[in-house]
Each structure stands twice: as C-alpha cells, then as structure tokens.
Design a protein around this nucleic acid. Structure first.
Lengths: 342, 342
DNA sequence: GTGAAAGCGCTAACAT
DNA sequence: ATGTTAGCGCTTTCAC
C-alpha cells in the first residue's frame, strides 16, 4: 500500500555517488559540482524524495523548531504578534509549535513541559495572567535552551525580554487627559499580577502626581478587561456621586464596552468623560468617537522576538548579554479625548 | 557548557540493564518486572532523563504532529479557529506546527513541502486566496496522509471539508435586505477564486432572483475586502447616479470601512442604505449602527476539524467516508439593516 | 524477564 | 569535488 520512502541512499545508488555527496548536494553545499547537484535534484524530484527531518535532527542534535506559549491565540494583539513571529521563523527555515496557556499557570507549565520534551531549540513566551513563578521553565535554563519573553514578561537573569515601556505609555496617556483639562481621572485595569498592568498603573499614578492631582483608590476599577467588564465598570461609575471626567483604560476592548454603556446612559464623550485606551485595536477606529489609545507594535514585536532568538541560535548574535529590548509605543490622539480646540 | 543529555544507555549502564529493557520499562511494557520498572523510573527522574522524540519518530515512522496552513494568522476568524484547533490537539497529546500562506499559492506550496518533510501525521488547511490547484498537496495524497480542509475548501475525493453553507448564508442575508424593502442591492466581495466568495455570490444572485430583482453587474464591487477597500468602495458608490439602497458585503471589516465613509458623506444607514456583513467580527457590535451579519462558529470549526483528523488517525473514526461537514451559521439582524418597524 | 544487535536516515569529521 | 565512516537515541526482532 504505502510506497516506500526514498532515502539519500536510493539516490546515491542510482547516481553512483556516495550518500554524503547526495546529502551535500541537496543542501546546496558549495563544494559540489553544479552538474552533480542538478543530477541529484532531478532524480530526487523524479523519485519523490523527501528529506527526513527526524534523522537530520537526531544527527544534528537540534530540531530547528521554536516553541511559543501565549495566553491566548485569539486576541488581536497576540495573533498579530504571532503572525510576525511566523513570518520570521518561516523565512529562517525554522518550525513553530504553538500552544496557549488560556491564562492559566498550570496549563502554561504543562505546555512548557511538552515543548521541552519536543526539544525546541528556543522558546518564546508571553506569560499567563496568573503565573506567579517561572520555575516551570527551569529545565530550559538548566539545558541552556534560550527563552525569550515578550509583552508579558518577568525579570530573570537568563532571559531576554521584549516589551514596551508600559509605565511611560500610561504616563503619557494620563498626562494627555490632564492636559485636556481632566481633574478626576479613573483607571480601569486588571489585577496587578503582570508587568503590563503594574507598570500601567504606575504610569497613571506618576502622571497624576506630576499633574498635581490626588491619587484616589476609589477611582481604580479592577476587572478582567473584557468588553463586558467594561460595560459593568460603566454601571459602577454611573452609580458614583460624581462621574470621573477622564478614564484611562488598560485595553481598548474594555474601554469600548465602557464607552458604549456610558453613551447609552447619555454621557457625552469626550465632553463629560474623556477616554484613553491601550493597544490600538482595530475597534478603536470604529467606535464613535474614535478612541485615543496607545499604539503598540505587535507584528514587529513578534518579528523582533523571533529574529533575536534565531540570531542567537545561529550564533549570528547573542542574547546572553541582552537583558531587555524596549520597543517604541505612541499615544494616538483621537476624538474620545479631545476636549480642547487644537 | 551544555550538560549532556541523558539517554537510555546512561540509565542502562547505571542499572546494569540493557537499553532494551530500559526502553521497555519506560514504555510500561508488560514483560518487565514491577521492581525493575520502578528502578528505571526513579533513576530517570533523578537524572532528568527525557525521551528523544526524534530518535523515536525516526524509528517508529510516526510523529504525533499535525500541521496547519492558513492564509493568515491575524484575522479574528482564523485566530479563533486556531484557538479551537489548539485546544483539541493539545488535549489529545499531539503537537501542532503552524504556518501561514499570506494568501499566496506559492508560499502555501512551500509550507506544504515543509509540513511534508516534517512528516506531519495529518494536515489541516484553509486555502490561500490565489490557490488554483492543489497539486502541491499531491505528496500527501500519495502517502495517504490525511488532509482536511476547513472554511476555504476545495473539492477533492481524498479530503474531508468542513465549512458553512456560504450560499445559503448569503441567500439569507440578501433576502433579508429584500424583505426590508431594498430594491437595488449591491454586493461587495473578493475575486471569485475561493468557494467562500463564489458561494456567497451565488446566494446573493439567487436571492435577487427569488425576490424578483434583476442582477446587475454594475452593482458588484470586487476588492480585497479590507477596511480600506471598503472605504474606497464607498467612494465608487457615491459617484454612481443612484446609490444602492442595500449592500451585502462578504466580510465585516470591509462593510465597516464602507459604512464609515458613506456616513461621513451624509448617507443615512440603514435609511438610505441598509448593510449586511459576514463573520460576526467583534467590530460589528461597535460600529454605529451595529452591523447585521452572518455569525460563523470559528472556534467550534477548529475543534471539529482537529477532532475529526485525530479520530481518524487514532482509528476511532474514519474520515475516508466523510466528504463534507457543514456547520450551522446564522443571520444576526442588527440596526444596520432594520428599515421596518418590528 | 532480559539482552544482543540491527537499523531508522541523515550529517560531518576526516580522508582522498 | 567526492567518498568513508561512525554515530545521533531509540525500538524491536530474535535469542536466551
């Protein structure tokens, strides 16, 4: 039934060459004559030869495969970042195995173990929401398998991290609201478990301080940052004695849920409440008024992360010395926060 | 530098056993004494042994890996479908290698070759926009490696396809516009290269016919269905002598670009022009008025596709006999198309 | 119940 | 420019 697999030995035999030459020819080794190569390729094609990666991996002791673990695949930011990663990985001839932690530390650990047993050459990780320690990555450190965190990162001596300056972005966002005349600025964010949320909170607080405003615990709402949670947050706000006049939300989806509910309740945006989100998600230009937000290079972050890891693996560059790569992010001012004439 | 990998030989040596016994013990082979097994496991753990999948795969001629090729990773639908696939694949103990064709047939062929060389046990494919033939999958058919298409499918005797009834969905969408009193209904779609667009066009045409309306070539706009293309389509429409009074767009993003531009030009939606999109993308509930659209089970489609393939591989079920699985889709009526009192 | 031995298909150091 | 050779780590048939 199953036609037998063709190997380099079959090719070698038929061409009166050694397997070594065939192997080299197939790899486009410079030391092989053009004509020989051509003969090899032609026969390979004719017989339907395909290289056996397992044999090759076994022999070379590397797998040419990178692993990636993300909280979820189906968010705009993540799928964009992964697209960037894939484009580089594919170009460089590596494979990619992907898994999602579903924001659970336990699943993240299980995924890490799978990646480890599959002997990935390197691992790209964006941490799950509730991951506290990273001891589940210890086996990688022990074996000197490079691990690179992106976006949701954690400090570790062995790892490079790629992310944006969340503190500064949040600072800019909040300061912008202050400049637009807001005096009572709320912040909607997630539990302070990950760098991204901690840093955004810090930036928010620092901007308040520098802008001469009091930080007020009551103006901070913690939720899961979903669109629905944003709507719920709006209800909470509406029950306050006094609405905030500006809100900095740690992601666009949640901001939009909140805006919609407020607007339905008759609140004017940005007149009564000005909004700034985070991520520059496509929805931010669909909502009316368009949402001011922090633009955040997902695709490029993915590319950069993958390229760094691969350069390190290929010996072209090393990430041993690189601790952090901080990418640029920008405040994009749109109608949701514009309260002053330009 | 690198601590050496522990192999079954290391274990065998230390335990005064043969590698064969260790291999059997690790695999829980019945012929091995309980106590021996325990000794093996304990030492394996102690030394941090991990089985080498490549050697094992090489020997066993099987990989426990599925491949997946999609047009792009960063669309809402695709990332959702992939999330569904991943959840099943992970649960079943398979690995997943992912690549994107970037809508190019050439890249798709290259990706297919990579998957083939990686000896995936099965392949899940959603076709690139400009793929015409599927001869690049021939090697899989020849080797009886199961191939399953989802969403963007093509007819082939050896493959199962999972998709929705695009014709019917489009028919319903268009008929809905007719029921809302539209007389001049435009259709914005992509070039007629893929089943999804061909079928949606057919449904559109059939609904026109059944609704007693003339099909008019001039009311069909072909573009790449991006949001920008939608905006451009709006410009085209605005230059017509008479605007259409209803538009069925083959995806939500494009619909939204078109709506925004029309509204900026003072067109009332749905009063002057009613809109129906396709996909139920998150933006469809953000745009004002909310977009009527076709809801379309991405996550479940992914799960179903992966489960089918794996059941086939495990021998639990066979897909040989299954030609097509058609999933349910629904018209979700929202404000963008409501012209009649309820 | 355990061992010996023969590969799976490829690569790379070392020849020539 | 090409060949020889010795494995990579595992599984499995056949012995004992």
């Amino acid at each position: 039934m199953k036609p037998k697999e063709i190997t380099i030995y079959d090719l070698a035999l038929k061409l009166n060459l050694s397997p070594a030459t065939v192997s080299r020819g197939l790899k486009d080794h410079p030391a092989i004559k053009k004509t020989t190569k051509k003969k090899i390729f032609d026969l390979a094609k004719e017989l339907g030869y395909r290289s056996n990666n397992f044999a090759s991996n076994l022999r070379r002791q590397r797998t040419n495969t990178l692993g990636i673990i993300v909280p979820r695949l189906n968010s705009h930011f993540m799928s964009t970042a992964i697209a960037g990663i894939e484009s580089v990985v594919n170009k460089e001839g590596y494979n990619l195995i992907i898994s999602q932690s579903q924001e659970s530390a336990i699943k993240e650990a299980a995924n890490a173990a799978t990646m480890f047993n599959n002997r990935v050459d390197g691992l790209l990780v964006s941490l799950a929401y509730d991951t506290k320690t990273i001891e589940h990555f210890e086996p990688f450190f022990k074996k000197h398998i490079p691990l690179l965190f992106f976006d949701r990162v954690i400090e570790h001596e062995n790892c490079t991290k790629i992310f944006i300056d969340n503190r500064k972005a949040a600072y800019d966002a909040t300061l912008h609201l202050i400049e637009q005349g807001c005096k009572r600025i709320a912040h909607i964010t997630a539990m302070q478990k990950r760098n991204v949320y901690v840093d955004r909170m810090r930036g928010y607080q620092e901007a308040l301080q520098d802008g001469g405003l009091e930080y007020d615990d009551d103006l901070v709402i913690i939720n899961n940052l979903s669109q629905e949670a944003g709507a719920a947050a709006a209800e909470t706000l509406l029950e306050m004695d006094e609405l905030p006049d500006g809100i900095f939300v740690a992601n666009d989806n949640c901001a939009i849920g909140c805006m919609q509910t407020l607007m339905e309740a008759g609140v004017n945006i940005p007149g009564d409440v000005a909004f700034v989100g985070f991520n520059n998600d496509p929805v931010s230009t669909v909502i009316q008024p368009n949402l001011t937000t922090i633009n955040y290079p997902g695709y490029q972050m993915g590319e950069l992360a993958a390229q760094n890891l691969i350069n390190h693996l290929n010996g072209t560059a090393t990430i041993e010395m690189t601790n952090s790569i901080i990418m640029r992010s920008d405040l994009i001012v749109r109608a949701s926060s514009k309260r002053l004439p330009e």
